[in-house]
Design a protein around this nucleic acid. Structure first.
Length: 106
DNA sequence: ATTCTGACATCCA
DNA sequence: ATGGATGCCAGAA
C-alpha cells in the first residue's frame, strides 16, 4: 500500500474531517482506529500531502504537542488554528488531551 | 536483503 | 513537565 495512493489517504482524510472543532486526535489514535497498515508516522506522511479541506491542525502527537517542527509549515500556525477553535494551550505549547482529545463514535 | 529516514510513541534522566 | 534516546511501522535508496 503506497502512502501517496488516494485509497490509502481517503480513510485518514475522512476520519480527520470527522474531528469536530475544538477537539484533537493523536497520530497513534488515528492509526489504531484505521487498523493495520496504518501507523502514527504514516498518518503524518498523509497529513503532509493532504491539507485543503482536511483539518490537519486537529491532529497532534500523544504529548499534546504540535509535530509540525516548522518543516513544511510555520511553527505557530497549528497552535493558532486550534486556539481559534477554543483549544487552550499551556505556556509550553501543550494542550490537555484529556480535555480536548476526541474519541470518534467507532 | 540491508540501511536510513520520518508532521510518532514510550521510557529514562 | 521538558529534552534525549530507543523502538515501531511503512517507505525509499
Amino acid at each position: 500500500m503506497r502512502l501517496d495512493e488516494p485509497a490509502y489517504r481517503e480513510p485518514v482524510d475522512e476520519l480527520v474531517r470527522s474531528i469536530p472543532p475544538g477537539r484533537v486526535m493523536t497520530y497513534g489514535q488515528i492509526a489504531a482506529i484505521l487498523g493495520p497498515g496504518y501507523t502514527a508516522r504514516s498518518i503524518g506522511y498523509v497529513m503532509r500531502g493532504s491539507g485543503e479541506d482536511v483539518p490537519w491542525h486537529r491532529v497532534i502527537n500523544a504529548r499534546g504537542r504540535t509535530s509540525t517542527s516548522g518543516l513544511t509549515l510555520p511553527l505557530d500556525l497549528q497552535r493558532e488554528l486550534l486556539e481559534r477553535e477554543g483549544v487552550q494551550f499551556s505556556s509550553g505549547g501543550v494542550c490537555s488531551l484529556k480535555q480536548y482529545g476526541w474519541e470518534p463514535a467507532a
